[in-house]
Write a protein that binds this DNA or RNA. Structure first.
Length: 878
RNA sequence: GCCCCUGUGGCGGAAUUGGUAGACGCGCCUGACUCAAAAUCAGGUUCCGCAAGGAGUGCUGGUUCGAGUCCGGCCAGGGGCACCA
């Protein structure tokens, strides 16, 4: 076939990859038409934030998606595989502050360079559908949907807390609070209440929870995390009467929510959130309490900080009456760990059975009474000191509940309190509570989607009319002072009220960037529609996304918000479905060794040489030969300098090598360790495949398929079809590392066969080798598309392998006539037995009992039991 | 602190989901080719032992004819925690 075999000596990735990328581009084979009649398949990777350069995490993510896209195309699907940019967010503003570059300019420059990098990877993306969320042509539609959501009752304004920097007078993100201080000013952060915009995601708590069951192609762990995040709990709202002699303004009752009414007889105190109305009222008359509440405000708003802060309380002097005993009163505290957002912002504390309550009483000397006794414990001697007991057991010290189980006691308390009344109302009512809070979307920042609202003194909150959309960001802004540039802008916010035409102010808050990413996958289905966010027919045709791939770090927020947003879009007529992602895959991170010089500085891998002597690895600086300490393996990060630039790898080895290594080394859901040796191994395999295909290209096969195949040719065919079967199955399940192991297996078998035939090739073998070559190239095409094109052309094909169909499996070639089963004696492997494939249990048992090893082990006795697991194993119990 | 996940040779991992532990790759060792090196090719490589054999999947206890896999208790590492994306 080829005149010059030496051309197979070395594959030139750099030259070939650019050439094939141009060939795909020229034919536009990855552009997807909405009127394609074939069965649809939508594969999507989480779109990147345009930070400046792609990193190895992107390479991994987009390679996986590309393998799926190319495979599904070969399987005959119309594949939608788009790409865009999650382009709003804080880093652009930080760049503006640090480097005096406008966020827009910075972002679009980053998009341009990252797009080039992605294109050098050979991804089969439909770039005609590219969107950037910071573009008015995108956020215009988001503003329209915001207004639709307002009309549909899905939006509200309410107070919520933010981190406030009292020096810079600005709101801080949790990320900008370092050890309780503002990251630029260093000032101690305070909590401050602002009126903010919210999406009412909590209206969908039950639905978002129930629908998790239907997401069968999501990882169980993600469904579980979302379930716990939504946090449904069934409990009791209980009204505690207050001793009015002790309350600030004759308040007569306090309502609490509890999921443990069974422990009511173990109650030792009540606790209020610092911003609870009763706490506020008491503080108005008690300066010390006011000071305590003020102290509670000097804390960030993150859950982690609240949970790990010292548990502090302040006794208000108010006494609450136990609902089952008018003579029993409990002290009412204000406590820094009670949240106003959950339940009623007030609890009763049962220290014996809740660790946090126990820590609290131990600090304030309130004591505890155990009311649940663990099984096998004597109630008379069961005491709690430092560790609360939250397990199962029987009720003790609880009057009429004694002896009941927790569930019985919970039911009994609920029943009794529902029936008893105070002021003509039941003392208690059952309530289902959710931990999930409404989604606060207001951000006091410039680089985000403006909220299309006008505030008018006369008319109040007025939506911007749809015809006036988009509300665009002003470009002439400055970042010389802290705070929101939209608010500082001299003219932008001053507008006429759309209703009364009087003087009014624009809303200067922008939307959370999670809003942008909650519907981009829908926009991809028809990004050309300038009139509406979606073309429902197109959206409903393509959605749901069949396979969504991204980092596990998005398991809760992004995915939950997207699920809510899709429901809201359905309610407002933009789509016809609830669940946006039918299949979800969460990939692991890319990690790398860290290196430190003698002086303790981090050193980047590119300037380190690692050597191995026996089992010991050591590292030195390439420049000076100075020894370097090899540190732990961590997520690639700029701060530890353990990053590898994808550009360097692609320049040195080619995109295919990078793609292959990314997929080969670890299961995709786990972290992968980037290693120089691993990449070199992948690179060697690229060359080996090229040489192997070169040899096959020189074999001349008969035009007609031979009627019979000799044993050697049959072995080649079996290896090819076994690999085809295995790879197909594993790509479908996204087990790429196993796919690659199967391809290595196949390649090893094929080089053995080639090595044996050498010169005089029989027609049956020649045909089998040609078939194997064609299968091999199509099998590795999804992972290494450029090399595959080069090989496909070398094998004499005039088509692009990227548009070829997947090989057709001959299942008859997978069947073996005999089968070798391991034989265990008492659970330890002692022998093998080879039997016909369809041998019955009796036949197998007879063959096993005739084995020397078995006869020896039984020593003349008959076995107690013989367990024959068909197709698997035989175990003889002696 | 709360929720979720992970732990197997020198290393990354495989194990038909309760049935031969270590596929495949990396590294290392031996040999061939070479003046030499690289590349390539052939063979070997869980540990202990000359061998027969024995041990072995973070630790620990259990269920089972049989456990890397299931259950209980620990230990270590990682992700998320609502304004990073």
């Amino acid at each position: 076939m080829t005149a010059d075999p030496s051309k197979y000596d070395r594959y030139n990735a750099r030259e070939a990859e650019a050439r094939w990328q141009r060939a795909w581009d020229a034919k536009g084979i990855f552009a997807t038409r909405n009127d394609d009649p074939r069965p649809k398949y939508y594969v999507l990777e989480m779109f990147p934030y345009p930070s400046g350069r792609i990193h190895m995490g992107h390479v991994r993510n987009y390679t996986m998606g590309d393998v799926v896209a190319r495979f599904k195309r070969a399987m005959g699907n119309a594949v939608l595989h788009p790409m865009g940019w999650d382009a709003f967010g804080m880093p652009a503003e930080n760049a503006a502050i640090d480097r005096k570059v406008h966020p827009k300019e910075w972002t679009y420059a980053n998009i341009a360079s990252m797009k080039k990098q992605l294109q050098s990877m050979g991804l089969s993306l439909d770039w005609a559908r590219e969107v950037a969320t910071c573009d008015p042509s995108y956020y215009k539609h988001q503003q329209k949907m915001f207004l639709d959501f307002v009309k549909a009752g899905l939006v509200e304004r309410k107070k919520s807390k933010v981190n406030w920097d009292p020096v810079d007078n600005t709101v801080l993100a949790n990320e900008q609070v370092i050890d309780g201080r503002g990251w630029r000013s260093g000032a101690l952060v305070e909590q401050r209440e602002l009126i903010q915009w919210f999406f009412k995601i909590s209206d969908y708590s039950e639905d978002l929870l129930n629908a998790l069951d239907g997401l069968e192609r999501w990882p169980d762990k993600v469904r579980l995390m979302q379930k716990n995040w939504i946090g449904k709990s069934e409990g009791l709202l209980v009204r505690f009467m207050l001793d009015q002699a002790t309350t600030p303004n004759k308040e007569s009752e306090l309502e609490i929510f509890t999921t443990r009414p069974d422990t009511l007889f173990g109650a030792k105190f009540m606790a209020l959130a610092p911003d609870h109305p009763l706490a506020q009222a008491a503080a108005a008359k008690n300066p010390k309490l006011a000071a305590f509440i003020e102290q509670c405000r000097h804390m960030g708003t993150s859950q982690q900080e609240i949970d790990t802060a010292d548990k502090l309380g302040f006794d208000t002097g108010i006494r609450a009456v136990h609902p089952f005993d008018p003579s029993w009163t409990l002290p009412v505290y204000v406590a820094n760990f009670i949240l106003m957002d959950y339940g009623t912002g007030a609890i009763f504390g049962c220290p014996a059975h809740d660790q946090r309550d126990l820590d609290f009483v131990n600090k304030y000397g309130l004591g505890n009474t155990p009311v649940v006794c663990p099984p096998n414990q004597d109630p008379a001697t069961f005491v709690i000191t430092d560790v609360a007991y939250d397990g199962d057991g029987r009720m003790i010290n609880s009057r009429f509940l004694d002896g009941m189980t927790i569930d019985e006691a919970r039911e009994e308390v609920a029943k009794r309190l529902e029936r008893s009344t105070a002021g003509n109302r039941a003392v208690a009512q059952r309530q289902i509570n959710y931990r999930l809070r409404d989604w606060g979307i207001s951000r006091q920042r410039y680089w985000g989607c403006p909220i299309p609202i006008v505030h008018c003194d006369k008319c109040g909150v007025v939506p911007v009319p749809a015809k006036d959309l988009p509300v665009t960001l002003p470009e002439d802004v400055s970042f010389d002072r802290p705070g929101n540039p939209l608010d500082h802008h001299p003219s932008w916010k001053h507008v006429a009220c759309p209703q009364c035409a009087g003087p009014a102010r624009r809303e200067t808050d922008t939307m959370d960037t999670f809003v942008d990413s909650s519907w981009y996958f829908t926009r991809f289905t028809d990004p050309w529609n300038t009139e509406a966010p979606t073309t429902p027919s197109a959206a409903n045709e393509w959605l749901p996304v069949d396979q969504y791939i991204g980092g596990i770090e998005h398991a809760i927020l992004h995915l939950l918000y997207s699920r809510f947003f899709t429901r809201a879009m359905r309610k407002t007529g933009h789509v016809g479905l609830d669940e946006p992602f039918a299949g979800l895959f969460t990939q692991g991170m890319v990690v790398h060794e860290t290196y430190r010089s003698k002086s303790g500085d981090w050193v980047e891998p590119a300037s380190v040489k690692v050597e191995t002597a026996g089992d010991v690895r050591s590292a030195t600086l390439i420049a000076s030969g100075e020894p370097v300490e090899i540190g732990s393996i961590e997520k690639m990060s700029k701060s530890k300098k353990n990053t590898i630039d994808p550009d360097d790898i692609i320049a040195d080895y080619g995109a295919d090598t990078a793609r292959w290594f990314m997929l080969s080394d670890s299961p995709p859901e786990r972290d992968v360790i980037w290693s120089e040796e691993g990449v070199k191994g992948a690179s060697r395999f690229v060359q080996r495949l090229w040489r192997m295909v070169g040899e096959i290209a020189q074999v001349t096969a008969p035009a007609e398929r031979p009627a019979d195949f000799g044993p050697a040719a049959l072995a080649v065919r079996k290896a090819a079809h076994r690999a085809l079967n295995n790879v197909s199955e594993d790509i479908d399940k996204l087990r790429f590392n196993r796919c690659i192991a199967h391809i290595y297996d196949f390649a090893n078998a094929l080089s053995d066969a080639i090595g044996e035939v050498e010169t005089a090739t029989a027609p049956d073998m020649a045909w089998a080798l040609r078939e194997a070559g064609d299968i091999l190239v199509r099998l590795f095409h999804p992972m290494m598309p450029h090399l595959a094109e080069e090989c496909w052309a070398a094998l004499g094909h005039k088509t692009l392998v990227a548009t070829e169909a997947w090989p057709v499996l001959e299942t008859a070639l997978l069947v073996e006539n005999t089968l070798t089963l391991p034989v265990q004696i008492n659970g330890k492997k002692r022998a093998d037995v080879t039997v016909p494939r369809d041998a019955g249990k009796e036949e197998i048992e007879a063959a096993v009992l005739a084995l020397d090893a078995v006869i020896k082990a039984l020593d003349g006795k008959s076995p107690k039991k013989v367990i024959v697991v068909p197709q698997r194993i035989v175990n003889v119990v002696a």
